[in-house]
Amino acid sequence: MANSILTKISPLWKLPSSTLIQPSRSTTSKHFNPKYKKHRAQKYLKIDLPDMNEDESKLTPEKMRQKMKERGLMPPRPWMERPFYISATGGVFEGYVPPEGDGKASLVSTTRAKQTVQLLEKKSKSMMAIRKIKSYEEDFDSKEFCQEAQNIYIKAHESLANNDKYALRKYVTEKAYPEFRHNSFLKTIRWKFLDSLEPPRVVHARCTDIISKENIFAQVTVRFHTRQQLAVYDRFGRLIHGSEIVAKDVLEYIVFEKHLSNLYGTWRVHDKIIPDWAPPKDPSKLTRLKPEPEPVSVVVEEEVEQPAIADK
Results as ranks from 00 to 15, higher is better:
K63Y: 00
G72S: 02
I273F: 01
L6C: 11
K46Y: 06
L168K: 12
S135K: 04
L239V: 06
I210V: 15
D51S: 05
E303N: 09
P99R: 12
L12H: 07
W267Y: 05
P34S: 14
C146V: 02
E174R: 14
Q147Y: 05
N215E: 12
P75F: 02
M128F: 12
S10W: 10
I309K: 04
I216V: 15
G72D: 03
A156I: 03
A310S: 09
F32L: 14
E158Q: 13
S212F: 07
F185K: 15
D164C: 06
F224P: 08
K63S: 00
A105T: 04
K37G: 11
A41L: 14
Y85L: 14
S18L: 06
P279R: 07
L197Q: 01
L260K: 11
I86L: 15
I9H: 02
K272R: 10
S212P: 06
E252A: 09
K213C: 09
E148M: 11
T110L: 13
K285E: 12
E81Q: 13
E94R: 11
T110H: 10
D311E: 08
E70V: 00
T221E: 04
R169A: 13
D249K: 03
E244K: 15
T28A: 13
D139K: 06
E62S: 00
P75H: 00
R190G: 04
K132R: 14
V203C: 14
P76V: 01
T60M: 05
E214D: 15
S297R: 13
W79S: 08
K38Q: 12
H241N: 13
S87V: 09
